[in-house]
Design a protein around this nucleic acid. Structure first.
Length: 562
RNA sequence: UGGGGUGUAGCCAAGUGGUAAGGCACCUGCCUUUGGAGCAGGCAUUCCGUAGGUUCGAAUCCUCCCACCCCAGCCA
């Protein structure tokens, strides 16, 4: 019998194209690129593109370039450049020496623009932005030629040079390609190549006051870097003819090709930089790295492992159909990864004190607790057991329903790693709130099983009242209450769908002391509760944890069904 | 009434003329010192957007139609 070890490598239509290009000898080396505009933070949609581009370069022994598409200084900032690089590194991308900026090519692009003029393929237009818009035509009607379209080459050359030298104000003139104002593809109706922007650029400072447009920049930058497969999202499909036109008309050093795939949409969130920026600017969240944000930095702070994001990007596939992925698919990748790798600890979010009446006052002992049942190499740690402990309020019910096998009066439950205990008495305050549980333990059940072999179904976590540490816990839920936040009635917008309960802060949780020692950024499992990531806001005496994701709750499901 | 795309299960997604992969979700059991995890099974009655056609045979080829997405920035 033979078992075929098929390591599932991602397959998609782009890789199919690359396979063919390699097979036909069109290329011998594949070069891809990730081309962010530094005008915001990266989000999980970018992660999809990164995994696609970087994954291809890696799997085909090719080359991966990071290229900032920094052609619009009115929106771009160094802070964004820095954050993008940090996020890419965290995702495990290595671009080595291949860090590029479209702004590196400004001079070459300018020279090519001059060449376009010389070939009669570009002209300086004096029309205002409004006039250009009004003469562009509509989806069904052709546009009208600009009255400046037939200027002489000499005049165009002169004007363009004067645009560059700063003689004109913003908006006074633009350089346009001379293609076809009647083209059914609006992108071909004499697109603007250069606009005047008296604005300092994060990289080039005040060296330029004219900046190339995306269409005049992207393909040529690809060609300069000898990118073989320029992969972008669907909305650029209409730009491909223009992309190809520049490549054909200009003496570029290579002939790259553009391929488009569908961008990622996720339920319960928004995925446009514009909207994410708004959430940040309007203080709907606490910054770009708020753990509720779908940004890479938000997910990092939330405690999502980068490997889980890779796994997710692999699972969703790459295709051309618009789609919205269930958030639960992302959660599945997160849980799968964390289950295997996250160390386990005990903590209680809503502590109730339980006193083990028959456990001697002043006595204590240590139990060995496995750090990760999924990973024998994770080892064990000591947890301290004492007469007074805390358990979670959710693990006790005075009047439990059927099949509830946690603690209740007279019921027996197993304390994880320790003993069986039985609740003997419930102490309440004047208002009737439970303040303390009086319990008894079975000394025979040390380690969590008894010689008589009796079955105790329920196992709960606990923390010693002697060495438990107080902690702040931030419980997160979806940022929006509906699957598609953009679907709103007239007069409303996506912010009307913000979930008012997306963040709940618990300040008096109690956790094992070992958790206070964890490095910020570490994600651990709190047994039976979920995964929690130590936040950078932690203080030595007051650790702070972000709930990354809860554990699946089978009990909640059976409750819901009954 | 222009151009460019896309329609396979609740959500993603393979499939490229030979009789509908896989994952998520969901449902059943089993197991369990996390009601987690794991294991076993179920989950598109040949309706693969719809209607025709070609073919021994069609999700795959052809034709009509329908639905949805993108494009009229001196944004990317």
């Amino acid at each position: 019998m033979t078992t075929e070890e098929t390591v599932s490598k991602p397959s998609n239509f782009i890789r199919d194209i690359i396979d063919e290009d390699l097979k036909s000898g069109k290329y011998t080396k594949i070069i891809t690129r990730f081309p962010p505009e530094p005008n915001g933070y990266l989000h999980v949609g970018h992660a999809k593109s990164i995994c696609l581009n970087y994954g291809i370069a890696r799997d085909y022994n090719g080359e991966f370039h990071l290229r900032f598409d920094d052609t619009n200084p009115t929106k771009e900032e160094q802070e964004y450049i820095d954050s993008i690089k940090e996020d890419l590194k965290w995702l495990g991308c290595e671009w080595g020496e291949h860090e590029y900026y479209a702004s590196n090519y400004f001079q070459q692009l300018y020279d090519w623009a001059v060449l376009m003029i010389e070939k009669g393929l570009a002209y300086v237009d004096d029309q205002t932005a409004d006039e250009i818009r009004d003469t562009r035509g509509t989806l069904t009607e052709p546009g009208k030629n600009s009255p400046f379209r037939d200027r002489s080459i000499e005049e165009n050359l002169d004007l363009f040079k004067r645009m560059k030298s700063g003689e004109f104000k913003n908006g006074e003139k633009v350089l346009r390609a001379k293609i076809d104002m009647a083209s059914p593809n609006i992108n071909m109706r004499d697109p603007v190549l250069y606009r005047i922007l008296h604005e300092a650029h994060p990289r080039t400072g005040n060296a330029w006051c004219i900046y190339p447009m995306y269409d005049f920049t992207h393909g040529q930058s690809d060609a300069i870097e000898k990118i073989t497969h320029s992969i972008c999202t669907l909305e650029f499909q209409d730009h491909r003819p223009l992309y190809d036109w520049f490549i054909k008309v200009l003496p570029v050093p290579a002939e790259p090709h553009q391929y488009e795939f569908a961008r990622l949409n996720l339920t319960y969130t928004v995925m446009s930089k514009r909207k994410l920026l708004r959430l940040v600017k309007d203080n709907k969240v606490n910054g770009w790295d708020d753990p509720r944000m779908p940004t890479i930095s938000g997910m990092r702070r939330r405690g999502y492992p980068p490997e889980a994001l890779h796994d997710f990007c692999e699972r969703i596939g790459v295709a051309k159909a618009n789609s919205t992925v269930d958030f639960s698919l992302l959660e599945s990748s997160i849980r799968d990864n964390l289950n295997l790798h996250a160390p386990r600890f005990m903590g209680v979010i809503k502590p109730i004190k339980a006193v083990i009446e028959n456990y001697p006052v002043g006595q204590h002992e240590y139990f060995d607790a496995d750090n990760n049942p999924e990973d024998p190499n994770a080892g064990t740690r000591k947890v301290k057991f004492t007469r007074e402990i805390y358990i979670d309020a959710d693990d006790f019910m005075e009047n439990p329903p059927k099949k509830y096998f946690r603690l209740s009066p007279g019921a027996e439950v197993r304390l994880k790693h320790a003993y069986y205990i039985t609740c003997k008495e419930v102490i309440k305050d004047a208002q009737g709130n439970i303040t303390e549980l009086r319990c008894e333990y079975d000394p025979q059940s040390r380690g969590g099983s008894s010689p008589d072999g009796r079955r105790v179904k329920g196992t709960i976590q606990w923390v010693s009242a002697e060495d438990g540490v107080k902690a702040e816990i931030r419980l997160y839920d979806h940022l929006f209450t509906v699957e598609n936040p953009d679907k709103v009635e007239d007069g409303k917008d996506f912010t009307d769908n913000i979930n008012p309960d997306s963040l709940q802060v618990v300040t008096d949780a109690i956790v094992e002391p070992a958790l206070a020692e964890l490095e910020p950024g570490t994600t651990a499992q709190f047994i039976r509760l979920g995964y929690f990531c130590k936040d950078k806001d932690s203080k030595p005496d007051k650790p702070v944890f972000n709930r990354t994701i809860s554990l699946k709750d089978g009990w909640a499901k059976t409750l819901a069904k009954s």
